[in-house]
């Protein structure tokens, strides 16, 4: 069994998918919180073993896991408060910005002032945006799940090509878990997404992308198309399409910028394993 779990495909695709699907189906009976929790559980089940269940010393990668847990709990607490979209967007943006600053500060603080400022500013905008932007799709959980599938796969594959398989696997595990969530969404009447899915999952994906840029060799320009995924996922589609085709179409459209990101990394780095 342990041997089986050591395969990246099992660890980062199959396992999070199954966990997310199972937990989603079970939690669905209890209502509003199921989708995001399922995805988060799928992500954690894949990433905790990858990090050896260790949190000391608290590396950047481990901080992402801690923040995923904290954001999940925060999402559960904030959801019943029914805050206005503008307030939620602002709050999530600020938290995303603070989160990336906490993670990268030990590294960027050793840089020259100009480089440090640029890295910090880029991180604040990128992570703030991805932590908050899925909130704009909140009314359509199908679009949110499609966006997290595309963003997770794009971030994961780009990070892997950018020389960090660990962060790559973490991103792909979010995509796999989101895929399971998307399947449940397709076959359910529920239409509004929960904060754990819009905020916590968006935050994790933003952090993974930016950490791969600062701590590894993910080119900065790969982050630009990735940041467009939540925007592209909003593009209108024919409403008369069956729900399953809507899911396929939304995921395909949302994946376009992710594919651009992956290709940009592929062609900018020497791939000669």
């Amino acid at each position: 069994m342990n041997n089986l779990l050591s395969y990246p495909e099992v660890q980062s695709v199959l396992l999070p998918f199954v966990v997310s699907l199972t937990s989603g189906l079970i939690l669905k009976r209890w209502g509003w919180c199921w989708a995001g929790i399922g995805v988060l559980l799928g992500y954690l089940v894949a990433t905790l073993p990858l990090n050896g269940f260790q949190f000391v010393p608290l590396t950047g990668t481990r901080k992402v896991i801690v923040l995923a847990l904290a954001a999940g709990i925060f999402g559960l607490v904030i959801d019943p408060l029914q805050l206005k979209t503008r307030l939620r967007f602002t709050m999530f943006f600020a938290i995303g910005a603070l989160a990336i600053a906490w993670i990268i500060w030990p590294v960027v603080s050793r840089k020259e002032t100009l480089e440090m400022s640029a890295l910090l500013a880029g991180g604040l905008v990128y992570c703030g945006w991805l932590a908050a932007s899925l909130e704009l799709l909140r009314q359509d959980s199908l679009r949110v799940a499609s966006a997290t599938v595309a963003l997770g796969a794009g971030t994961g594959l780009a990070a892997t090509l950018g020389a960090t398989a660990l962060l790559g696997q973490m991103g792909i595990s979010v995509a796999a878990a989101s895929g399971a969530c998307l399947i449940i969404v397709v076959f359910s009447a529920r239409n509004t997404a929960d904060t754990v899915l819009t905020f916590a999952v968006g935050l994790v994906l933003g952090l993974l992308g930016y950490v791969a840029f600062v701590f590894a060799r993910l080119p900065w320009f790969a982050l630009l198309p990735l940041a467009l995924v939540p925007v592209v996922a909003r593009l209108p589609l024919p409403q008369r399409l069956p729900r399953i085709l809507q899911a396929v179409a939304t995921t395909a459209v949302a994946s376009l910028p992710a594919i651009v990101a992956v290709l940009s990394v592929y062609f900018s780095t020497e791939q000669s394993y």
């Binding site: 950047g60 990668t61 020389a163 398989a165 962060l167 701590f215 590894a216």
Partner: peptide, 17 residues
Amino acid sequence: DKRDEHLRSPDFLNVAE
């Protein structure tokens, strides 16, 4: 070089941190 880049990443030596 490609392997060295990977060894420097958070997967192994995590040289940034």
